[in-house]
Amino acid sequence: MEAEQPIDSSRAIREAVAVLSAAGVPSPRVDAEILTAHVLGVPRSKLLLAPALDPARAGRLRELVADRARRVPLQHLTGVAPFHHVDVAVGPGVFVPRPETELLVEWGLSVFDREVVVDLCSGSGAIALAVAAARPAARVYAVERDAAALEWLRRNAESTSVRVVAGDVTDPDLLADLDGAVDLVLCNPPYVPAGTPVPDEVARFDPYPAVFSGPDGLDLIRELVPRVARLLRPGGWFGVEHDDTHGAAVPALLRADGRFDEVSDHRDLAGRPRFATARRAKTAVADYSS
């Protein structure tokens, strides 16, 4: 029996693209290149110079491509989600961070000039890790309550300056020692309205509580607003990602609280409403402690 021969990377990529395209994967070429680079252990940008795949690597690539064709998230297959300027370990049990959320991080870094940052609903820790990498002198807290997500968060925060806090973001006692002292709160909470159709990768692999939040998607954000108002110092900033149907609703919640000013909504690169921001007013209309 003739031994299987090595396969050059360009042929392997073509074959992978054909499989992924037939399966309806949205970005077959990109995914094929990322999986091939992963198997070869080289950066995607170096694929043209990569060696041929030996039979073992070629077999492994075919397995990964078959899994991706079944809509297993690409990041679960590689074990990592690139986010901002960090690589975040992800897998079953934790929400995969999306590139759109990098816009929220960029905004946060543009207004943050002090030292205390809180990332609520941290999940894998992507936001906290990105901020800590960009602002090494900052004190960054990452809050998560889900046990499975906490495992990933702790793994990602190991050997970094990020301080992991296990807790419910709606708990009035959460980080009570920081009340009135936080410079920036960032949050990518669950916000999809229940029953909304989502891609297979989300429906089958992202944890339901990390995606959906009640009939209109605003259940958790409603509870977050007063807690964040207590955490922030006067002049501190809040940024929260939301569903693309919430471009008016989330700013309205922030204004109705009475303790925020400079409320704005921001669009993503596709022009869709993506996140809202507000500043903790220095003189609040309704400066109460609830």
Rank of each mutant, 00 (worst) to 15 (best):
F205K: 05
A133S: 15
V263N: 04
V105P: 03
T101M: 08
H84S: 14
G217S: 14
V42E: 08
V185I: 13
A81N: 04
M1A: 15
P215R: 10
P73V: 01
T170V: 14
R14P: 05
E106L: 09
D206P: 02
V198I: 08
V118F: 12
P209W: 02
A132T: 09
D168M: 02
L220M: 09
L253E: 10
V140Q: 03
V165H: 07
L53E: 05
V131T: 05
A3W: 09
V117S: 05
R68G: 06
A58W: 00
H242Y: 05
V263P: 05
A133F: 08
G258I: 04
G214S: 13
L231Y: 12
A37M: 07
C187E: 01
L129W: 00
A181G: 09
H76N: 03
V118S: 01
F205R: 02
R57Y: 04
H76Q: 03
R280P: 13
G271L: 00
V117W: 10
L104K: 06
V80N: 09
V118L: 02
V80R: 15
A147Y: 01
I13S: 06
V118Q: 09
D206E: 03
Q75W: 00
L174A: 10
R135E: 02
C187P: 03
P99A: 15
A133K: 13
A157T: 07
Y208A: 09
R154L: 00
Y208K: 11
T78H: 14
L150D: 00
A210E: 00
I34V: 15
A210K: 00
R57Q: 13
A56G: 04
H85Q: 13
D261S: 07
L253P: 08
L253W: 06
G41I: 10
P189N: 00
A18L: 11
L150N: 03
E102R: 13
A278V: 08
L232R: 12
R233K: 15
V263R: 01
P251W: 10
D67C: 08
V72K: 02
D146K: 05
P51I: 06
H84E: 15
G91L: 08
V105A: 00
L104T: 03
G125V: 00
V90I: 12
A69R: 06
L186W: 03
N156L: 10
L253V: 13
P92Y: 09
D168C: 00
I13Y: 01
G41T: 08
P136R: 01
A132F: 07
A256P: 03
E33D: 11
E15I: 11
P189L: 01
A81Q: 15
D173N: 10
L184E: 09
A166Q: 13
S290D: 14
V96H: 07
C121V: 11
R222F: 07
P97F: 10
